[in-house]
Design a protein around this nucleic acid. Structure first.
Lengths: 345, 345
DNA sequence: GGCACTTGCTAATCCGATTTAGCGGAGATC
DNA sequence: GATCTCCGCTAAATCGGATTAGCAAGTGCC
């Protein structure tokens, strides 16, 4: 790549000064005395020649590359992914950093190779991210490095974590139902325990359930039932279908994720029940479909963009990093799937 | 970042040879004679010390950074995004390259800044990507550079393009309908012209329509009608709803994208029509929802992963790049939304 | 034994910046 | 007038590798 770039030596020559002077003038450092005349000559020469510093040469000397590494297990397979990276990108750009994105696919050997590749290229810091909130153990190469854990926790590993505030999200969902008058006939559909197929069950499901139950209890209400299942559309359909077939008549559903809600909608529609007149639905994640459904789905959003942004801002901050856990708020997206409670039949 | 890394000088000292010898031994070059004894001493020393070459120092000298820049207007807002990047990542990793991901948001000034940032860091090549296939004009900084255009075309700009084969996709959709016996009552729903709100209408819509009509014509069939609208769920719902209200009774719908199909499903369901018994639906893109819908949607998939993979493979290939257009096949995902044609009422 | 050639290795330079050490000249001090 | 201090700037070293030029010892040949 590249044509013959203009070097600082070229600029210095043209300005009639030494490379040293050019360097100080261009970097604008004040601890070395440069006359205003010399400074402007250098600046003019640099502008004339269209000079751009070679970041590679610079970072060889300074040990800082203005570069970050983003290591994650999977970057596709939404809901995570896109917006997180975009948030990280935005924050990085604000500080003139570029982002290396990598994906390990969950393979330790691949992970190790990629992390080494990043380290070899002198990244200033590494964001170690997981697509579903869970416990991780970062590779040994990262020990002692400037690392931030995104959407994961690593007890014993000295680095800060940034995760969504799932407990508060559970409370938010509960309050949304309570505010509409729902105090009975509430069912939770989805994964709330550690289920093999849904690794996030460990975390998101558990914490959401905790927050939900806490807020219901405080209001003197409670769940009529909890249905355990995976977090896919088909699971939501199957379980709600079964629930209705068994004769239950829920007034409100709290679904683990929008995909489950999607399935729930299908089952409710087939049973001739309408949302939100017959059944209210509140959900989590705020995927695209939440807005497409009819009626549009009220859901507690995963703050993807904010997670990415915050991670980069913390890691590019000045101070040393303390191993604390930052919980990012999950905002409620009010749409049309929660209706007023009706007196129980 | 970084602790005190082991340098090549350390390795040389430990092996009792000169840095030059260490360099040649480690890089495995054969044009310089190194005895087997010396070579293994160096290798052993490197292994003992856990030596890893400093990629920054290397690229300063070699002008190659084993690094690629990925510049796109938007990386979130599926359908593009995730899988494309993953494909690119996979191909890059196979060749020991790391990927800088950037997002311009469509802003020329931002774009220019990011491209310069990439160039400053000595990227070996740049992939200039667009989320919707359309014509672009890459920034001047990229002229004369090793560039590949992904999902876009730039007449007059000397670089290869990689785009999905939309014409053939249109044929594929048409053939799927014909194979099921559909020859009448076929409607196209979506954008097929250059519509402001759907920039891809320029390309994808136009080409898909061309392929579709060609294949229908060849079979002696034709479209009963074409409905122009944007590419969102609500548009599909509204237009199909209106179509039915006007008394039309389509036997098959060809929707511009799965989101439109999603809306079409909603309208058909409300009208008491079932898919595929009453109406067959074939679509494009293969987004996640295609598999969640009931019945699951038959759709012609955008080859996201393959687009990303192919882009990187081409650009990391040896030869010079010729400005040709590579069209990546779009495979048909057969699911359950196309049923056999019934004799027209 | 002398010359050419190969073998195996090293010294020195380069890549393009940053950074440290230090050098002339002007003005101040005694 | 000699010494001291600033000022403004430059020479040279440095970062960690890759690469070029070349040197000493050994081998082959006549």
């Amino acid at each position: 790549m590249s044509g013959n770039r203009v070097t600082m030596a070229d600029v210095a020559r043209r300005a009639g000064v030494s490379p040293t002077t050019a360097s100080f003038a261009l970097s604008g450092r004040t601890d070395m005395r440069i006359s205003e005349a010399a400074r402007s000559k250098v600046l003019a020469a640099a502008a004339d020649l269209g000079y751009r510093p070679n970041a590679t040469a610079r970072s060889l000397r300074t040990k800082s590359s203005q570069t970050l590494g983003f290591v994650s297990d999977t970057i596709t397979t939404t809901p995570f992914a896109g917006e997180v990276i975009r948030g990280a990108l935005d924050a990085a750009r604000a500080k003139d950093h570029l982002l290396f994105i990598t994906e390990t696919g969950g393979d330790r050997a691949v992970e190790s190779g990629l992390v080494n590749g990043l380290l070899d290229r002198q990244v200033d810091a590494v964001i170690y991210a997981a697509m579903y909130t869970h416990y991780v153990s970062p590779p040994p190469e990262l020990h002692g490095r400037r690392v931030l854990l995104l959407n994961c926790l690593a007890p014993g590993f000295d680095a800060p974590s940034v995760i969504p505030d799932e407990i508060e999200a559970g409370r938010t969902a509960g309050r949304a139902l309570l505010a509409a008058g729902h105090a009975a006939g509430i069912w939770a559909i989805g994964g709330h325990q550690a289920i093999p197929a849904t690794p996030d069950g460990i975390f998101a499901g558990l914490e959401r359930m905790r927050g939900l139950q806490e807020v219901l209890r405080d209001a003197g209400a409670r769940l009529d039932g909890v249905v355990e299942c995976d977090w896919n559309a088909e699971d939501g359909y199957r379980e709600v279908d079964r629930l209705l077939a068994e004769g239950h008549r829920p007034r409100a559903l709290v679904c683990s994720t929008d995909r489950v809600s999607f399935g729930a909608y299908q089952a409710l529609a087939e049973a001739g029940l309408s949302v939100p007149q017959d059944v209210s639905v509140v959900s989590f994640d705020d995927q695209d479909i939440a807005g497409w459904l009819k009626p549009a789905l009220t859901t507690v959003a995963l703050p993807h963009h904010e997670l990415g942004r915050k991670a980069v801002e913390l890691i590019l901050g000045d101070g040393p990093l303390s191993a604390e856990t930052h919980r990012v708020p999950m905002p409620l997206r009010k749409r049309d799937s929660i209706g007023p409670a009706r007196p129980t039949a």
